[in-house]
Amino acid sequence: MKDREDQIFESGEKNDAFAQYFVGQSYLNMLTTSPVGVANVTFEPSCRNNWHIHHKGGQILLVTAGKGYYQEWGKPAQELHPGDVVNIPPEVKHWHGAAKDSWFSHLAIEVPADGASNEWCEALSDEEYNAL
């Protein structure tokens, strides 16, 4: 069942397996796992993931609902809206998540590569997030 009218895909279950890498509540619905991992990730308002790096494979985000942000280390944050596409090259430290006043959903596509991995880093500080 869809949680909100503007959702294209179901939100799935609370993202408890990765909760330590998020500030706030997120939900995960794996749409495919093979040959390419595609997940619908839904963020409650103000929820965001920690800074992280995709080694070797990279990631593609397809925004499907709400308003959110994407930011690469050392660059200003970009506001995201449905229809936006973010192509994240390998080895780029970044975070993404919901705006303070909006739910946010995107499809996260794992770009396949031999030896691909994900490195979770520090949380985006409340001070940095609240300055958006």
Score class of each variant (00 low, 15 high):
residue 28 L to I: 12
residue 28 L to M: 11
residue 48 R to L: 05
residue 24 G to Q: 07
residue 120 W to I: 06
residue 23 V to F: 05
residue 9 F to I: 04
residue 14 K to I: 14
residue 110 E to W: 03
residue 50 N to H: 15
residue 64 T to C: 13
residue 129 Y to Q: 07
residue 26 S to F: 01
residue 125 S to L: 07
residue 53 I to K: 09
residue 126 D to K: 12
residue 51 W to M: 12
residue 3 D to F: 02
residue 51 W to H: 08
residue 131 A to L: 00
residue 21 Y to G: 01
residue 4 R to H: 15
residue 115 G to S: 07
residue 103 W to C: 04
residue 15 N to V: 06
residue 17 A to D: 14
residue 48 R to Q: 08
residue 43 F to Y: 13
residue 15 N to I: 03
residue 126 D to S: 10
residue 11 S to I: 07
residue 36 V to W: 11
residue 40 N to D: 12
residue 72 E to F: 03
residue 80 L to E: 03
residue 17 A to H: 11
residue 69 Y to F: 15
residue 26 S to T: 15
residue 49 N to C: 15
residue 20 Q to A: 11
residue 16 D to R: 06
residue 122 E to T: 06
residue 106 H to G: 07
residue 98 A to P: 08
residue 122 E to P: 01
residue 59 Q to S: 14
residue 60 I to V: 13
residue 31 L to V: 14
residue 122 E to R: 07
residue 29 N to E: 09
residue 13 E to K: 12
residue 30 M to H: 15
residue 74 G to D: 09
residue 48 R to Y: 08
residue 69 Y to C: 07
residue 108 A to L: 04
residue 77 A to C: 06
residue 123 A to G: 08
residue 68 G to W: 09
residue 127 E to A: 15
residue 118 N to A: 01
residue 74 G to S: 11
residue 76 P to M: 07
residue 132 L to G: 10
residue 9 F to R: 04
residue 118 N to F: 03
residue 64 T to K: 03
residue 19 A to H: 10
residue 23 V to Q: 04
residue 73 W to P: 01
residue 61 L to V: 08
residue 85 V to C: 13
residue 80 L to G: 06
residue 29 N to W: 13
residue 13 E to P: 00
residue 118 N to G: 00
residue 33 T to R: 15
residue 13 E to Q: 14
residue 74 G to E: 11
residue 33 T to F: 03
residue 97 G to Y: 02
residue 117 S to I: 01
residue 54 H to A: 03
residue 103 W to M: 07
residue 4 R to C: 12
residue 14 K to E: 10
residue 62 L to F: 15
residue 124 L to Q: 06
residue 90 P to A: 15
residue 56 K to G: 00
